[in-house]
Amino acid sequence: MHATPAPARPGDVYFFGTCLLDLFLPEAGLDAMTLLEREGVRVHFPQAQSCCGQPAFTSGQPGEAREVARSQLGLFDQPWPIVVPSGSCGGMIKHHWPTLFAGDADEARACAVAGRVVEFADFLLNVLRIELRDQGKPTKVAVHTSCSARREMNTHVHGWALVDQLAQVERVVHDHESECCGFGGVFSLRHPDISGAMVSDKSAALQDSGAVEFVTADGGCLLNINGKLAHDGKAFRGKHLASFLLERTGGKA
């Protein structure tokens, strides 16, 4: 656990949208970019970006992961922070690229990129020192944090702090809040019974928490839990933290 130091407020940032948001939740990515721009930051989205390599990395295919990661190394030439709207993808780059490239000709480049990665919520809170002005009606939300975001990026604390800035929003704690939702990438495909049991418990805990909806800063968890809720015919849903914050602060119709 470490406190993130407050660096100087940058004028420009790169935005690494992640492959899941790109194809399945693009609105969340756009909302995150809008929030950053509203804070006066110029947001650069390299069009040649695709994925951090995590799906292959966690599937025992580090070679394939490395080649995808390598194709991203040249996209961030300027010394700007790289904002990632997902704790697990951010953690992959920040903490696992250095290992993935250890001894490789591109090790230094990979480490340089890794060193500039900041998770979205962390960036809003600790770099931009955002002050959110809540314009919504009173509501209650639960926060789910992805496990790698929690353990590698300390993101749960950032998510809580941001939601807690909203005057009309009551943040409720759900049962076993720190527990995994059962996503785990390929795990959810290979072990549907166990993953299903985990997401079933997670979605029940979120619904029983008294919250009207839940928020999370990770696309994988969001797709997993919302997919389960929809499968079970429930009306309860979650949304990406970026979309929720933008909505609450009048940035979204």
Partner: peptide, 17 residues
């Protein structure tokens, strides 16, 4: 295994790119 417990993953109408 995904759809044993979840609705299918469906791409959005347009990508973030």
């Amino acid at each position: 295994g995904w759809t044993v417990h979840r609705t299918p993953l469906t791409p959005a109408k347009q990508s973030l790119h």
